[in-house]
């Protein structure tokens, strides 16, 4: 191997290393992974049983606007957004066309029942024992909130905490659909 070839190879290696270094440095800057999936525009099919035994299904709810919130009792952001959900629910308590369901992800029924009683949660709460509803919505954590229009199509979704104004915007988005 001649000296010139060795030097050429060294330069090539240095270029590759520099590129790799930039990629690694960029990778370090990034925060957590961003979710790239999403189901806006799709019609998820689900069927859950609420704590009082009522069965709610995507078919049965057709014609009404449905707010679906995935949550559980050990998730801190869920507890933080609970007041916003309560206020939103109270505002729309009179609207017959709006249904709100809190679907529990990865938690025990006992803990959920206690929590619902203590906090006086007034909207529908359902367990999802085999995670089939979570799968239908492509849920990867909690809280995640979806609003489904009367046509059964998801109009808006939010991964992470929501505020009352977020919820109102999402609701407007969904009500527009028929």
């Amino acid at each position: 191997m001649t000296a010139t070839r060795i030097r050429a190879a060294a330069v090539a290696v240095a270029v590759v290393l520099a590129a790799a270094g930039i990629v690694l440095a960029l990778g370090m800057d990034d925060g957590g992974p961003t979710v790239t999936g999403g189901i806006v525009g799709e019609s998820p099919r689900f069927e859950v049983e609420t704590l009082d035994g009522t069965v709610l299904s995507s078919e049965g709810l057709r014609g009404r606007t449905v707010v679906v919130n995935f949550w559980n009792t050990w998730c801190i952001p869920c507890l933080r957004e609970a007041p916003a959900l309560a206020e939103f629910h109270a505002r729309h308590a009179g609207d017959d066309d709006v249904v709100m369901i809190g679907i529990v992800r990865d938690d025990t029924e006992r803990a959920v029942r206690e929590h619902v009683e203590e906090e006086g949660i007034a909207w529908e709460v359902a367990m999802d024992p085999r995670s089939r509803a979570a799968l239908a919505f492509g849920v990867t954590g909690q809280p995640e909130t979806f609003v489904i229009g009367p046509d059964g199509v998801v109009a808006a979704e939010r991964r992470g905490e929501v505020s009352v104004s977020d919820l109102e915007l999402m609701l407007d988005e969904a009500r527009g659909r028929t």
């Binding site: 085999r130 995670s131 979570a134």
Partner: peptide, 10 residues
């Protein structure tokens, strides 16, 4: 994980 079980079933 429960989601993985659900997906295997699904």
């Amino acid at each position: 994980a429960p989601e993985a079980r659900a997906m295997r079933e699904d």
